[in-house]
Amino acid sequence: MTPPGYRQGDGRNAGGQAETAAGARARGQIPSWARASIALLLLALFGGLALAVLSLSSPAPGLSEAVAARIGESGVSHPVTAVLLNFRAYDTLLELVVLVVAMIGAWSVGTARGCGGDTPGPLLRHLPRLLAPLMVLAAGYLLWAGAHSPGGAFQAGSLLGGVGILLCLSGRPLPDGLLGWPLRLAAMLGVIVFAALGAGVAALPGGSPLGWPPDAAKALILSIELAAMLSIGFILAALFAGGRP
């Protein structure tokens, strides 16, 4: 489509001049006295912050006792998961919303064009066959283990994101049937399930939004975590692919 001469010229222009311009800006426009004064200012900032930390009161306020007191009714026995999905559930819900917004932003500035490389080498073509199932298994384990030991939706979701990146790098295109609403549903699933269940428990007698009843809490938390894991994994892989499919 474009003549090769144009392409080369464009390459030299964009790559070469942008680099030298950046170099000139970095070296030329910020003279050494300005760098030195920036460094001095930042050193002063560091000194002030260090003084602030060193003068902190010794019996520090903490929330571990408050968490430990109520963990019995949270539905899970691992305190971090209890905080994430029960005590501070609003945080986590809005965090999933932030992920979706970031993905919408990335989708609206460009289209995905493969995953960086042109053709995958033999290692990338065959390794995902071995690794992807193992990583999915590990993600499932992390999700389940999150109820009683370190692990949970975020770690499992980022592992799933890694699976997505591997599959993307191995050059397997998504089937056409998945390209429309299933992708968007996968991204929204965490928010949808979280918000629906959160609103649902508010409709119970004496319930409040996102206030899980203690006897159903474990099932609710696990289903939210499952949906959140899928969404996080998908969104991370979509951010890696860099745009609308």
């Binding site: 903490g62 571990s64 968490v67 305190p79 971090v80 965090e95 970031a102 932003g105 990335a106 890696f240």
Partner: peptide
């Protein structure tokens, strides 16, 4: 360890990677 800061940092890490992805796209 206090679980509340851990949970907040956990969400923070995921938000940071999402922001990085958006910035890279831009």
């Amino acid at each position: 360890p206090d679980p509340v800061p851990q949970a907040m940092v956990l969400t923070g890490i995921v938000v940071a990677v999402a922001a990085t992805g958006l910035a890279v796209a831009l």
